[in-house]
Design a protein around this nucleic acid. Structure first.
Lengths: 287, 287
DNA sequence: GCCAATCATGAATATTCTTGATGCATGGAC
DNA sequence: GTCCATGCATCAAGAATATTCATGATTGGC
């Protein structure tokens, strides 16, 4: 089954063999034997590419499930004995400030040296869906005040507010506080339309009854920072996050917009790694 | 993993070995090897009994899941090629009339000779929960008119009414029709309090505003029939089902109480066997 | 204290998987 | 069109794994 999944993912017997540290003929044999046992072809081999047959497509997801369950069985047994191992899949919004993520990851590796950490940046909606589906173990996400997430276990991390973030040369940069109306005419850099971060600033302006213009929709925080620094745009960002941005000025808003960061994980069947990680975070936050 | 599950289920290396058609020492070796690989004991062996350790308990459900997924993979591949195999777990209420169940099962075996049929009698609530949980493939159940089942795929089979079922010697047995009020003083035999069948007759009386007395709560339809025949009780039963009961008289009710029989199955991921079965039933019903 | 049942162990055997060498088909370069 | 590179299949041999057989060790019940 590992071979089937490998071939399906790489589209090649040779590459799948390399990935599994065996020679290609081992796969040829195993797949041939499996196909004989099942009485169906799983792959169509043409000399340039390998594709799944319909039967292969039907087989694949359950083969994956079987492998995952087998790994999970191993990890659970290890966890029962105190050893945390396996893979922890973490998702993080681009603007985490609640925890010092590198520090958390370092602590995690120190305490659980056998645990493989797979972290990636993602948006909150995706993460919620993935945690529910069981394809992500842990999500760090940002929520507007009053929003609730259902169907997952969660832990509040921090409360923050949005703040205006400007170039030092910007005429408004000298103010002590700014209202959203002050910013109405500025060109904004913001998150893509689908993201939770964008919804937060949109909601803030909507509540204030102010129309603003988003001139740049950016997926990358680096790019956002560059635009702000060069004076091409302003942004509404979590104040703690903006405070750590070099070369920009952060001005608090008169209209307070509260934002929370929370940690989510599977409510019903968290993996041993997820359980260990949430406990670790809890420890780090309440020393 | 098969061995682990077998040992956990039988509580014995010897019996699990027999079930897997190998000798006991094969299991001893394999389990020892697995425990070595995992670095944990899975079982505590005392010379009289074998019990799971904590690690074993943690391991077991995922081992089961892995085995199930592997079987499912095989079955899906076979199905993609037109062969239906594996196991079909069917649940049936005691009073099915919508289909001739033996005939359906016979047709199923004829068309899918490689499919193992595992049928059992159960109540509607259990079946709905089990189908949702994926531990039952198919449920035949009875519903009161207007009731809805959520979260499962379903197909209406038949519409029926409840009818009074009496001994031939019963004074009311000669009537053409009976009202629920006529039956108020009779000692009733009915289903256990939790079952859907019981709720159906309770609801009928409640709607008619009639108080009745349930003298016998019976799980077995045979017993119910005997009590009716011997004149010790009367019952409200699906008329089609009662009609097929030997030695009783069925009298229609003035207060019409409609009841449906439906077929339910997993909405999102029906097993190949479940898909094939629902199609077969559809064919048999619409010739 | 002995018996019966049960699991563990070790060596021998059987089975299964992998390897390495080679063959065959195919798409692309010239 | 020929030649070459790439990629999967095949075969026999060897390696690794699983099972068996014979036997030992433990223990609960009589």
């Amino acid at each position: 089954m590992r071979y089937v999944v490998g071939i399906a993912e790489t589209g090649s017997f040779t590459r799948a063999a390399a990935r599994n540290f065996v020679v290609q003929s081992a796969l040829s044999h195993q797949i041939a034997a499996l196909e004989r046992e099942l009485g169906v072809q799983l792959f169509v081999r043409s000399s340039r590419q390998v594709r799944l047959t319909e039967a292969g497509e039907a087989f694949l997801p359950h083969a994956r499930a079987a492998l995952d369950a087998a790994d999970r069985a191993r990890d659970e047994a290890a966890a029962a004995q105190g050893t945390v191992r396996g893979t922890l899949r973490i998702g993080v919004i681009p603007t985490v400030t609640a925890v010092d993520l590198p520090a958390v990851l370092r602590a995690c590796r120190t305490r659980f040296p056998e645990l493989l950490l797979a972290a990636r940046v993602a948006n909150s909606e995706e993460m919620i869906a993935e945690v529910r589906a069981g394809t992500l173990d842990i999500g760090f996400l940002g929520l507007l005040d009053g929003t609730r997430v259902e169907g997952v276990a969660q832990r509040a991390l921090t409360r923050d507010t949005l703040a205006a973030t400007l170039a030092p040369e910007h005429p408004l940069a000298t103010r002590d506080r700014l209202s959203l109306a002050d910013l109405a005419e500025e060109p904004f850099a913001d998150f893509p339309r689908t993201s939770a971060g964008r919804k937060q600033s949109d909601a803030a302006f909507a509540r204030a009854g102010v129309e603003r213009q988003v001139a740049y929709e950016l997926g990358s925080m680096d790019l956002t920072r560059e635009l702000i620094v060069s004076g091409l745009a302003v942004a509404l960002l979590p104040s703690r996050y903006a405070a750590a941005m070099p070369g920009v000025v952060v001005v608090p808003l008169i209209e307070e917009t509260v934002r929370h960061e929370i940690l989510i994980w599977d409510r019903l069947h968290p993996s041993p790694a997820a359980r260990a990680f949430t406990e670790l975070v809890a420890e780090l936050l309440t020393p």
